[in-house]
């Protein structure tokens, strides 16, 4: 016996709220594995209620919790061998895979994976930046990563090719404070990644804005960004 499509929304809500009795929940779990319309309904229900969880005041978490997870991970198998660490009642409803999506998703995420590598590399190195900002273009694609070391040095890694006309140059900016306004970190010669130094600015903060604009060769004549924004993003404290 399966749940009929007309009842999907009702069951999805009650499933997400944890209100189904065990028999119904098990039934739904089984059906979710192959019924994409039902899985969609569950995903929608989940998103509807999610803000009730994400708005919560975070608990203070000690390093011992992560250590405990790492210890358990050591016992668990690699991701490819799934069943080893399965809890008693598997939440198959959480399987939101849809095969047709996979190829598209993988290619769309390739840039993000580069970013993951960049982030991980940047936060595990010995000379640590104070903040890391991931810069995205208007379409939300990752374009560059800025690491600000706070000692008047910032490293800019470009993660895509930029077409810069001969009479133009890429200029990197940050907004240390509203009062100060946008400040130049420097120019990227030949649209290459670079380490920029020499601009004495306040210690970078969490959520500080960084961006790259296209300026005339030699940099913005006004000392403020004047050209179109190629990428921008907010910094996060490296920890």
């Amino acid at each position: 016996m399966t749940v009929a499509p007309k009842d999907f929304a009702t069951y999805a809500d009650e499933y997400v709220l944890g209100l189904l009795d065990e028999a119904d929940a098990t039934r739904l779990d089984a059906q979710l594995e192959h019924d994409t319309a039902l899985a969609d309904a569950v995903a929608q229900a989940r998103e509807r209620f999610l803000p009730l969880d994400t708005g919560i005041e975070p608990a203070r978490v000690t390093p011992s919790l992560w250590n405990a997870i790492e210890t358990r991970l050591a016992d668990a198998q690699a991701p490819s061998s799934i069943p080893s660490a399965s809890p008693p009642r598997p939440a198959a409803g959480n399987d939101n895979a849809r095969s047709g999506w996979r190829a598209a998703a993988i290619s769309a995420m390739a840039a993000s994976l580069m970013l993951a590598g960049g982030l991980i590399w940047s936060v595990t190195r010995t000379a640590d930046p104070l903040v890391v900002a991931v810069l995205l273009n208007e379409a939300g694609e990752v374009q560059a990563v800025v690491e600000d070391f706070g000692n008047d040095t910032a490293s800019v890694k470009l993660l895509t090719d930029f077409a810069v006309p001969a009479d133009k140059t890429m200029q990197v900016w940050t907004l240390p404070s509203r009062e100060m306004g946008p400040m130049s970190l420097g120019l990227l010669q030949d649209a290459h990644s670079a380490t920029l130094s020499g601009s004495a600015l306040p210690r970078p903060q969490d959520t500080q804005l960084y961006e790259i604009t296209l300026e005339q060769a030699g940099g913005s004549p006004t000392g403020r960004p004047t050209g179109p924004i190629l990428a921008k993003g907010f910094a996060k404290l490296a920890r």
Partner: peptide
């Protein structure tokens, strides 16, 4: 702790097309 092990072993089941990563993790 248990949930993080499960996230680790089942991350391949997440597909960005259906719902958010955040929703999946919280679930």
């Amino acid at each position: 702790q248990e949930a993080f092990i499960r996230i680790w072993t089942h991350a391949h089941q997440f597909a960005p097309g259906r719902g958010s990563a955040r929703g999946w993790i919280y679930a």
